[in-house]
Simulated assay, not measured.
Amino acid sequence: MVQFADFVLDRYLAPEASKFLEFEAPNLTPRPDYLAAHLLNSVFYTTPVADNELVLMLIRRLDQAHTEYEAGRSDALRYVEALRTGNHAVRAYWHALMHFEQCIVATYLAVLAHSSISEIWDKDTEKPFQKGDGSSCERLNLLYTAIKHSHKWLQERGTSSNSAIWLSNLSLKGIQKTGQVIELRYDEIAEAISLLSDDATWRCFEVHRELRTRKPPVELGS
């Protein structure tokens, strides 16, 4: 059994790590085999698919996001469960944070792929978010940016923070260059993955039959 003082967790593990005492994040719906469906439909249907490379990018990023979310959720639950026996299983926290960090990156890149595909078929497609709209998609972007520039921002801030993002009971939190804290709830991350999954299902299972008569059904960033 290993226990650490609050200041040790907060200073050397992650901001507010000592306050991470509970964890609530929804399960994700099991994924279909997007890749097999896309490959088979591309081979056996004659409908041209001009966005093939982007579809492959979408389902690859989506698959990664799904995998990392599930792994992060599992490790976070393991950390919280260990707390009940008085044990700070810091490696479980570390792995949970690592997986959720990769989940944020993959989810945002999937959003970009989704947006690019939509623009191919409809030039008037709206962007996933507008700057300053406060939507979950904008906050996803802000967390992605915090991760992307974390090494530079942490260097500029000196010792004021030890991580670009961290876990809280209901959300992932991150810090912007200005020092402002960003927050994205786990259920919002799960919803973004679910919406992207809906789009991937349409792209991989239905698009070859309905491409010319139906527009993408998913609007992200609400």
Rank of each mutant, 00 (worst) to 15 (best):
residue 205 F to D: 06
residue 152 K to C: 13
residue 119 E to A: 15
residue 2 V to S: 15
residue 86 G to R: 06
residue 157 R to W: 15
residue 145 T to M: 11
residue 32 P to E: 13
residue 156 E to I: 07
residue 114 H to S: 14
residue 126 E to V: 10
residue 84 R to I: 04
residue 107 T to K: 02
residue 218 V to M: 05
residue 112 L to G: 06
residue 167 L to H: 00
residue 55 V to Q: 14
residue 80 V to S: 09
residue 25 A to R: 02
residue 12 Y to D: 15
residue 116 S to M: 12
residue 213 T to S: 09
residue 37 A to L: 10
residue 222 S to L: 13
residue 58 L to N: 00
residue 202 W to I: 13
residue 36 A to L: 11
residue 203 R to N: 15
residue 82 A to K: 10
residue 155 Q to K: 11
residue 130 Q to P: 11
residue 32 P to L: 08
residue 130 Q to M: 15
residue 60 R to H: 12
residue 209 R to C: 14
residue 159 T to F: 10
residue 175 I to D: 00
residue 167 L to P: 00
residue 153 W to A: 14
residue 170 L to N: 01
residue 190 A to L: 01
residue 103 C to F: 02
residue 219 E to I: 12
residue 146 A to Q: 07
residue 173 K to S: 02
residue 211 L to A: 03
residue 130 Q to T: 15
residue 68 E to S: 12
residue 89 A to L: 05
residue 77 L to P: 07
residue 76 A to G: 06
residue 75 D to N: 14
residue 181 V to G: 08
residue 22 E to I: 10
residue 154 L to T: 00
residue 40 L to G: 03
residue 92 A to I: 00
residue 185 R to Q: 12
residue 74 S to F: 02
residue 183 E to L: 08
residue 107 T to A: 05
residue 134 G to L: 11
residue 89 A to I: 04
residue 138 E to Y: 09
residue 198 D to W: 02
residue 58 L to R: 01
residue 160 S to C: 02
residue 48 P to Q: 09
residue 118 S to D: 14
residue 207 V to N: 10
residue 147 I to E: 03
residue 211 L to T: 05
residue 163 S to R: 14
residue 43 V to H: 10
residue 30 P to T: 09
residue 7 F to T: 12
residue 12 Y to P: 11
residue 62 L to K: 03
residue 76 A to R: 02
residue 168 S to A: 07
residue 52 N to P: 06
residue 98 M to G: 12
residue 78 R to F: 01
residue 83 L to M: 06
residue 145 T to E: 08
residue 147 I to R: 15
residue 86 G to W: 02
residue 211 L to H: 05
residue 138 E to D: 00
residue 36 A to W: 09
residue 150 S to K: 03
residue 24 E to R: 04
residue 12 Y to I: 04
residue 126 E to A: 13
residue 201 T to P: 13
residue 167 L to W: 00
residue 56 L to D: 04
